[in-house]
Structures are given as structure tokens and as C-alpha cells.
């Protein structure tokens, strides 16, 4: 059987990892290739790089960054942030990325999902969905532009639509949970895994060991994404995996 994946996420700004990473004593904590290599050594199953570069002029830096990472780190790499065209996707895949992740562009231009899937295969196309629970309407709503813009889209319906359009995987972030360290939004992922048949990466809310086992034991998601707990060394990947193994979850 496939193992459940543990996926650290790195925010990259103009070729440098933005948030501090202090789980290893690197002389240069901002270098994406060094940090990626350290995570590979720890046993990460995949890495997500999120381009948070503010200006379009500096976007090319991500291609150079991925080129460098892929020369030293031999594991699946997913890149998201600021991808607006098939040409953007091609440049990143050519540089060594295995998958590209679309977020805002998938909402503003859904044809891009299909165009990417047709050219590179669905396995290369991840759609990232940022959601927040709407208490009044009792449903999850999709947000874009880094969570700043609310849309009318229902998250579950949107998930179905992007899969129909060719997305091979979904990276779904609960904005309600993100940063709270109160655990993943289990109800959200239960609903999503019932609605679509592609792999789902859960994101937002993890703060302790049992958050990972709760996620994998109570939902059918394939992967757990985490950033700060790993970056700040609050948890290490080996201890997360050991805990999962003890609880009968299949990990690498």
C-alpha cells in the first residue's frame, strides 16, 4: 500500500526561504537547497515550495531556485504561487519540479487546469484551495489571493469541479485552523475525500503529534502538510513518523 506522506512547506521569497528554519544548525538558514536537503535527510516524503515573491519582476527567481534544489535533492517537489500560464508551469517542471500547484489562477481561469493537465498529465497538476467555514451558510467557502478575497464558490463543489477539469491532486488549507495549532479540520477532509477520488493533502492547524494520527486515522487524506512545527523544530519528521507507525499508520 501507498504510505501516508509527510510534506513540509517552505515559503520562498525571491529565492530565499522567508520564515526562519531552525531545526538544523545551518550557517545559511535562508537557502532553499540546504533546507530541502535537511528535510530530505529527516525523511520528508515530498516538499512544497510556495512562491511568496510580491513582485512579478522577481518571479523568475523561483525557476532558478527549483533548478538548484533539484540538483541536490531527489524527491518529489511541488511548486505553487504566482503560476498563471502553461508557460509558467513548463518552466518550473523543466527546472525539476514534479508538480505545479494552482490557486488563484484556477479560480480566475479554470481552463488553465485543463490546459496544464492535457499538456503535462493530471499527475503534474495540483489545485490548492484555501477555505474558511461560513457559519451563516453552514458551508466551506473558497478564498483566493492568499486568503484575502472571498469567493462565492462552495469548497466541496469547487473540489469536484477542478478534478473534473483535470486536477490530479488537491492541497486544501483550512484558514480557520491555520496558525492555531489546534489540529487539522477533520470534518473538512472527511467531506472532501467523500466528494473526490484524487489524493488530498491536508494543511492548516497541526501543532502536536496526535494531530497527524488523528488526521490519518479519522480521514482518508493521503498527505499532511506542515510548516512551522517543523521549521521551528517543535516536532521532527522522524518522531511524527514513529508515532504514526506505532499507531498502525503506514509511513515510509
Amino acid at each position: 500500500m501507498l504510505t501516508k506522506r509527510i510534506v513540509p512547506c517552505l515559503d520562498v521569497d525571491n529565492g530565499r526561504v522567508k520564515k526562519g528554519v531552525n531545526f538544523v544548525h545551518l550557517t545559511d538558514v535562508g537557502d532553499p537547497a540546504d533546507i530541502a536537503a535537511a528535510y530530505e535527510k529527516q525523511g520528508a516524503d515530498e516538499l512544497v515550495f510556495l512562491d511568496i515573491t510580491a513582485t512579478n519582476e522577481d518571479r523568475g527567481a523561483m525557476v532558478t531556485t527549483i533548478e538548484k534544489v533539484a540538483s541536490q535533492v531527489f524527491m518529489p517537489l511541488t511548486v505553487g504561487g504566482g503560476i498563471h500560464s502553461v508557460a509558467d508551469m513548463q518552466a518550473l517542471l523543466k527546472a525539476g519540479a514534479d508538480k505545479v500547484s494552482l490557486n488563484t489562477a484556477a479560480v480566475t481561469n479554470p481552463e488553465l487546469i485543463t490546459a496544464g493537465a492535457e499538456k503535462f498529465g493530471s499527475q503534474c497538476i495540483v489545485v490548492a484551495i484555501d477555505v474558511r467555514f461560513d457559519e451563516k451558510a453552514q458551508r466551506y467557502r473558497v478564498y483566493t489571493n492568499g486568503g484575502q478575497k472571498v469567493t462565492d464558490l462552495d469548497a466541496i463543489e469547487w473540489a469536484k469541479e477542478v478534478v473534473n477539469r483535470g486536477a490530479g491532486e488537491l492541497l486544501v488549507t483550512s484558514m480557520d485552523q491555520d496558525g492555531t495549532k489546534a489540529g487539522y479540520d477533520l470534518a473538512l477532509y472527511q467531506a472532501l475525500t467523500k466528494a473526490v477520488a484524487v489524493p488530498i493533502i491536508a494543511s492548516g492547524g497541526c501543532g502536536k503529534l496526535s494531530d497527524f494520527s488523528d488526521l490519518f486515522q479519522q480521514t482518508k487524506v493521503d498527505a499532511a502538510l506542515a510548516a512551522s512545527v517543523f521549521h521551528y523544530g517543535e516536532l521532527t519528521i522522524p518522531e511524527v513518523k514513529q508515532d504514526l507507525r506505532q499507531k498502525g499508520v503506514n509511513v515510509r
Binding site: M1, L2, T3, G168, E169, V198, P199, R252
Partner: peptide, 10 residues
């Protein structure tokens, strides 16, 4: 069993 078979397998 999702297709493609994608991920880490033993």
C-alpha cells in the same frame, strides 16, 4: 485504489 498509483510504496 486511486489511479494513477502515485506516491511512496514498498
Amino acid at each position: 485504489y486511486k489511479v494513477p498509483h502515485m506516491g511512496w510504496n514498498t
